[in-house]
């Protein structure tokens, strides 16, 4: 990535401003405890941000991740007596099943991704709620907790490590692997992607599966951290995650976005929340501040970048939040 393009990214500037702000004025920002908390909180959502980035670059959308989180969390806790590896495998299989169902609806029956995943969001939530009777399930195995709470290398929480691996993998996948280029091509223009010989069904299957998978892992990590499988977690997750991805330069119409950009978007939201916490700002003001930040960002974006007529395809109307170019130039727009 060239330096000039890096400096042109608004998220980066915002991020730097936020870092300066919290480190100068937040008393306890640079303490181990606060940083650990921040890393854990960001990691759980960050995993899903990576999955969502791939789906959204491919022109898709996944609202079901919050419900998948709850599903895998409950399953892993319920299956713990069978042993940890088996329980985790079951939870991931369930998550993958939701992903396959999503793709079948979207690709097989040509249902709009928004509707298909809205449907699976409701169905999966209903399943989990019916199964647990809307009560949280306590975990029986005390060693399970370590997955969410243990630290490595003198203080790095395990979830942070998982997230770092996911970030690197996603970045490599999107920039260097063939399937990554195909995801950009799919999001840029599905018809031309198909015409140029890309198996669009396979690419879609891949991206939604990864997204459901990341949601499954997040659910397991969160269940480990809480030592409970909660059927009601993740109600707002999808919108938060999508917001972070959009902040990071992806577009609802697909074809643009990058793992690092989404990471920046995630950090912005996380740092803002953490900063407000450090200043003991009441929760209600935090909500307002987050909303105002979102509104300010889009307004600033539009004032500094006068809207140029975009070729309109589906959602594309004025939706590109950031002036960022497609992460990979050549294959982005075909």
């Amino acid at each position: 990535m060239k330096l000039t393009r890096l400096l042109g990214q608004r998220t980066l500037w915002l991020l730097m401003a936020l870092v300066v702000w919290v480190s100068l004025f937040g008393r306890d920002f640079w303490t181990l405890a606060n940083l650990q908390n921040l890393v854990i909180a960001l990691s759980v959502e960050g995993l899903m941000v990576m999955g969502m980035t791939i789906v959204m670059i491919g022109g898709g959308f996944d609202l079901s991740i919050g419900s998948v989180m709850a599903l895998s969390g409950v399953i892993v806790v319920e299956a713990l007596p069978l042993g940890k590896p088996v329980a985790i495998m079951f939870a991931l299989i369930a998550a993958a099943a939701v992903g396959i169902a999503n793709v079948s609806l979207i690709s097989g029956l040509r249902v709009n991704p928004f509707i298909a995943t809205l449907g699976s969001m409701i169905v999966v939530r209903g399943l989990v709620m019916t199964y647990t009777n809307a009560r949280p399930v306590p975990a029986s195995d005390p060693t399970f907790m370590s997955l969410g709470r243990a630290t490595l290398f003198g203080g790095l929480p395990v979830p942070g490590l998982i997230f770092a691996a996911a970030l690197v993998l996603t970045h490599l996948l999107l920039t260097s692997l063939k399937i990554g280029r195909e995801v950009y091509a799919l999001g840029g223009n599905e018809e031309s992607a198909r015409s140029s010989g890309i198996a669009t069904y396979r690419v879609k299957m891949f991206s939604y599966l990864i997204c459901s998978f990341t949601a499954g892992i997040s659910g397991i990590v969160l269940a480990a951290r809480l030592n409970t499988g909660s059927p009601i977690i993740g109600e707002n997750t999808a919108l938060n995650v999508i917001t972070a991805v959009l902040l990071g330069g992806a577009s609802l119409s697909g074809g643009v976005g990058s793992a690092l950009g989404s990471f920046g978007g995630l950090l912005c939201i996380g740092l803002l929340g953490n900063g407000l916490n450090l200043f003991d700002v009441p929760a209600y003001y935090q909500r307002i501040a987050q909303g105002v930040l979102l509104l300010l960002l889009v307004v600033l974006e539009r004032i500094t970048h006068r809207p140029t007529p975009v070729s309109v395809r589906g959602f594309a109307y004025g939706l590109q939040l950031s002036g960022q170019e497609p992460g990979g130039d050549a294959a982005g727009k075909m």
Binding site: L252, G291, V298, E301, P307
Partner: peptide
């Protein structure tokens, strides 16, 4: 401003909910 309607209305949702609370 031709801004992204999802982001704007989610932002507005936060602001309005916060103000009500």
């Amino acid at each position: 401003l031709r801004a992204n309607s999802i982001i704007v209305t989610v932002g507005m949702q936060f602001v309005v909910t916060g103000c009500v609370l």
